[in-house]
Simulated scan of single mutants.
Amino acid sequence: MKNFVVKTTANAAALAVAIWLLQDITLTGADTGRKVLTLILVALLFGLVNFIVKPVVQLLTLPLFILTLGLITLIVNALMLKLTSALAGAADLSFHVEGFWTAVLGGLIIAIVSWAMHIALPDED
């Protein structure tokens, strides 16, 4: 359970940094409490997408991972962020990623911040 909370917190922090740095990744809400709740729900959704969809996409694009020496990971991360944005829109959450290149940069920011958060936070169960 603790590992789940740590991963969700890291995802939420990484998403918050991407939202703060990039103007085309938006999270809107009436007040701060509503924004925090939406951010946590989007972090849960992002974690679910990364848990279910990302391994399948990585397996299907394995030759490209080898060919590009792993740089295709940036594209896969961008696609996972765009999928999260589409699912958040379908779930009536006010989170949106505008444009593919914004998603690539957002995916890079999220990967770096999430990596740093996983190092800083304990992750044992």
Rank of each mutant, 00 (worst) to 15 (best):
L121E: 10
A18P: 07
A90R: 09
A43R: 00
I119V: 15
W101N: 06
L39P: 12
M80F: 13
L62G: 00
L79C: 02
V42Q: 01
L81N: 06
P122G: 08
M1N: 13
L64R: 09
T73P: 15
S85H: 05
A43V: 01
N50M: 11
L15N: 09
W101L: 05
V17P: 12
T28R: 15
T9D: 04
A10C: 04
L105G: 02
W20F: 14
T73S: 15
L108G: 10
A103C: 00
L45C: 02
T73C: 12
Q58A: 04
L21H: 00
N50L: 00
Q58G: 08
L48F: 12
T84H: 00
D123C: 10
D92T: 02
W20E: 08
D123H: 14
S94Q: 15
I112A: 11
L83S: 08
I52G: 08
Q23C: 14
S85F: 07
A78I: 03
A14Y: 08
V97H: 03
A10T: 05
N77A: 01
A78E: 07
T73Q: 12
F65P: 09
G47P: 04
T102E: 11
L21W: 03
L93F: 04
L71Q: 13
T32H: 06
T73E: 15
T61I: 05
V113R: 09
I119K: 15
F95Q: 00
V57H: 12
